[in-house]
Design a protein around this nucleic acid. Structure first.
Lengths: 212, 212
DNA sequence: TAACAATCTCGACTGCAGTCAACTTTAAGA
DNA sequence: TCTTAAAGTTGACTGCAGTCGAGATTGTTA
């Protein structure tokens, strides 16, 4: 890597760190780009040469954070555990990180779920990483007979993810307390696994006679 | 209603109509409050005496729209139809409205799901209206044996709503085309009803032997 | 080392969201 | 009808996000 590139990377890191620190101190809206620039010892224009918008700075931070989460999850991952528990571990881990960065999480989720501009391709990369973590877990659960094999992995992911979104939204809107998230997630995930319609029998749910 | 109140209501309506019209013409970001004020024949400050922020204008519009949807749903509502179809009707109706107001829908959903300020109490009212439509439908489905009776109505709503959110997000991020929304919703809702784990038998899913 | 081009840095500038104190209109009581 | 206070209106003003062209720095070639 050339000297120039090293310097650039360092500058970007400095700006990001300074920004996050100021955001944490005074809040996102009360921190101007000019203040960030000054505090980081660069010009306002320089900040904009590293980040296209103010929100982009948050994005930079969150993407680092998400990478951390993925690494954390790979470590925690244990396939000898029921799928319900595994899914709970994954999404509770994400939730823990969000509780620690409530405002950033909110701004990031907004962009991720209802984006301003469909720049695409950017989020796709993170999404791929996400699937790399989830798909093997779900696939193994299918093989163990814990999950239906006639449902696409993408859809299985979708079911759990959508419930996670619901809980997150309920938490952000104050409809559910932090302490209640764990039990609520457990309940919703279990219901999703069992189905919303009455079961056809009461046998232990192990036997499997589906296609294939 | 006093003359004063009538006038105020009329002014508010004029501003709202003008704003929506300009938003549609030039987009939300390319329409300044000053332009709205001028076009509506009032001062900038007046706009702010009716709407606290620019986003608030969108909110005003969307709330009217949602009221329309609720009325529409009450008319369409037909309890002699499987719950899957009823839920699909409800959420596809909402989706139709959103396709017709893509940008407004996006801005509204952002606020609704990940709000800036937890002003609460405001959205609560709309939420109550929402439940007034949904709860009776779900309750009747429970009575008919189409839905489990051991799941809270709020949670049942949550399951369907969360999948709707997922689809909406997938649509906004370009992961799913408008034409595919219908079939995707059908698939996801059906899977949620049946459950993600393998069924314990293959009997037709009518018999019910749960508690109570 | 000099000359040049590519890249990076900068802060003055533009445009707009949101505020506020001065001004105008309304309504109610005398 | 006149007076007055409350309600409503206004646009000049403030602060900040994002732009842009001029200037500084770096790497390259001779």
């Amino acid at each position: 890597m050339s000297i120039r590139e090293q310097k650039k990377k360092k500058t970007k890191k400095t700006i990001l760190k300074t920004a996050i620190s100021l955001f944490n101190e005074n809040g996102y809206d009360n921190t101007s780009i000019e203040a960030i620039a000054k505090s980081a010892g660069v010009g306002k224009g320089t900040v904009y040469s590293y980040f296209n918008t103010k929100r982009d700075i948050i994005k930079g931070f969150c993407e680092d954070e998400i990478e951390q989460i993925h690494l954390e999850l790979v470590k925690k991952s244990n396939e000898n555990v029921p799928i319900l528990e595994q899914m709970k571990t994954i999404y509770m881990t994400e939730f823990q990180h969000i509780t620690q960065n409530k405002e950033f999480g909110r701004l990031y989720m907004r962009e991720a779920i209802f984006p301003d501009d469909v720049d695409m391709e950017e989020n796709r990369e993170l999404e791929t990483e996400y699937f790399k973590v989830l798909f093997p877990i779900l696939e193994k659960a299918q093989k163990r007979g814990e999950l239906r094999k006639d449902i696409d992995l993408l859809f299985l992911t979708g079911h759990f993810y959508s419930l996670y979104l619901l809980i997150l939204s309920a938490w952000y809107t104050g409809r559910i307390l932090t302490e209640a998230v764990d039990i609520t997630m457990e309940t919703l995930f279990r219901q999703a696994l069992e189905g919303l319609q009455p079961a056809s029998g009461n046998q232990p749910l192990i036997i499997e006679k589906r296609h294939e």
